[in-house]
Amino acid sequence: MSIRRQFSDPPPGELKLDAYLPYRLSVASNAVSQLIARAYEDRFGLSIPQWRVMCVLAEDGGLTQGAVVSRTGMDKVTVSRAAQGLSTRRLIGRSDHHADGRSHVLALTAQGAQLHAEVAPLALAYEAALISGLSPDEVGLLKRLLGRLQNAADALSGGKA
């Protein structure tokens, strides 16, 4: 059940959770992730981290787990578990890294690429439904603002997001 609240700015210097931007971003992100996670899990047996790993590999080709961590912002353990689950299902393969014998390169298998091609239209449909109430200019502004917030968070954390 969803609770609708009026969001107004509190007096300066007063913290009100519903007006606190980091909280609002987290709640919105969780709501979107949970909606999409249910669809991916129910229809395709994929978790959100597994889907993110698949998308990165579909876009960038073979990558090390470290590169996937950097690209997605997920932690090492989450990426490792997602990769293990995808590997078990034979959706990704692992090969030796040519320059680092301790590392492996992850890549989609043909079966993984086929599943990605099946899921991607659903992901785009969810995105379209989520932004249907926004104008193209508002969508562009939202993407730019989110990018700026992410850059600011990276800078404040010393680049260790």
Rank of each mutant, 00 (worst) to 15 (best):
R38Y: 07
T109E: 08
V32R: 06
M1V: 13
Q84L: 14
L91F: 05
G93N: 09
G112D: 00
G85Y: 03
V53I: 02
K16E: 15
R24V: 11
L149K: 06
L86Y: 02
S70D: 02
A161T: 04
A67K: 12
G133N: 05
E14I: 03
K16M: 15
V53H: 00
V69T: 02
D42T: 06
S80T: 09
Q150H: 12
L86P: 00
D18C: 07
S29F: 06
M74I: 00
V69L: 00
A67T: 04
L17W: 11
R38I: 09
S132F: 03
L146Y: 07
K160M: 09
A99E: 15
A161P: 05
Y23F: 15
T64Q: 03
K16Y: 14
G158Q: 04
C55N: 11
A82G: 04
T72Y: 02
S29D: 15
G62V: 00
G101A: 15
A113Y: 09
L46I: 01
L25S: 03
D9H: 08
R38L: 05
N151G: 10
A113P: 07
R71Y: 08
L86N: 01
A19K: 03
V53K: 02
A28N: 05
P11T: 12
G66M: 01
T109C: 12
S2F: 12
A19Q: 04
E118M: 13
R52T: 01
D60S: 15
M1N: 12
I3D: 13
A110L: 12
S103I: 08
R94K: 13
R43E: 06
A19N: 04
A128D: 11
A83D: 00
L17G: 14
I3G: 08
Q65W: 04
R43A: 08
W51Q: 00
P49R: 00
D60T: 11
E59Q: 08
A113V: 09
A39C: 07
D75E: 10
E41V: 02
A39H: 02
